[in-house]
């Protein structure tokens, strides 16, 4: 056994095999991000008549390991918009620092009222993401931006690591696009129905969708953040617990694991 300090804390080759050098090369050509490392799962959002509700759980996974269980993935901007990040957590933190700088310089220019609204912010971020993908050095995130647009109407849009953008009455990233989006679309199939939805209804729908995500998404957590944005600002709760969970259905699921019947 090698007890030299260089060997401390390293996995033994005879047990784990040789280290795969493609992951960490100390010298050699610069390599850009090829895959996300610590990741956050779905973010979901829905528009209602006076604003937007958005939610994401507080988990940061390292592969299949639930690595950090208290990571806030919703970020308010200038108390007038909200951002939800899924994907790489370190890229999220980079963007967070970047946005802090942006909001400071904006506040310096115009201290009285925020001027970069959600629509402006979304355009800025999508340009940023698109520029990075064009340099083959992507920021590995898929994000939702919620708030109000130039006309004071509710605004909800997505931007991803390729710079793709789209907007809809309800949106979800990652697994949420498969699991939560169909539920939300039942309530808001189009803009007209989003205009009729009340705040309470929207929050209930999002909570319901978060529950389904926790049931079915293996990389999810039952502690989550939920934000409501209206013209009065952002109300962000970062320590919500999923309520009324019922695992009764689990009994009826067959064909997995150690089940024998």
């Amino acid at each position: 056994m090698d007890h030299r300090p260089q060997a401390w804390g390293r996995p033994r080759d005879d047990v784990y095999g040789a280290y795969d050098h493609s992951y960490m090369q100390e010298n050699g050509p610069k390599q850009n991000t090829q895959q996300p490392i610590v990741t956050g799962t779905s973010v979901i959002g829905i528009k209602f008549k006076d604003g937007v509700v958005i939610a994401a759980d507080n988990l940061a996974s390292y592969g299949s390991l639930a690595r950090f269980t208290d990571v806030k993935r919703l970020r308010p901007f200038a108390d007038s918009s909200i951002l939800g990040f899924s994907g790489d957590i370190s890229d999220m933190q980079y963007l967070d620092r970047h946005l802090t700088e942006l909001s400071l310089s904006e506040a310096y220019e115009s201290p009285d009222k925020p001027r970069l609204n959600a629509a402006n912010l979304h355009r800025y971020l999508s340009k940023l993401l698109y520029n990075r993908r064009s340099k083959f050095d992507p920021l590995w995130n898929h994000l939702l931006v919620g708030g109000l647009d130039d006309n004071g109407e509710p605004f909800l849009a997505a931007a991803d690591l390729l710079g793709s953008t789209y907007s809809a009455p309800s949106l979800a990233t990652g697994f949420g696009a498969m699991l939560a989006q169909p539920i939300m679309r039942r309530y808001v199939p189009d803009e007209e129905s989003a205009k009729k939805l009340t705040r309470e209804e929207a929050v209930d729908i999002v909570k319901e969708a978060m529950k389904v995500l926790f049931y079915r998404d293996a990389r999810s957590l039952d502690t989550y953040s939920l934000a409501v944005v209206t013209k009065d600002g952002v109300e962000l709760k970062e320590d919500e617990k999923l309520e009324n969970q019922s695992w009764a259905f689990a009994d009826r699921i067959k064909g997995y694991g150690t089940q024998t019947v």
Binding site: D20, S22, Q25, E26, G28, Q31, Q34, R133, F136
Partner: peptide, 18 residues
């Protein structure tokens, strides 16, 4: 070091598709 390799020693493909 050489170009990225997989655990099996084959060159690893770029995972990012723009």
């Amino acid at each position: 070091s050489d170009a990225p390799k997989t655990a099996r020693g084959e060159p690893r493909e770029h995972a990012f598709n723009p």
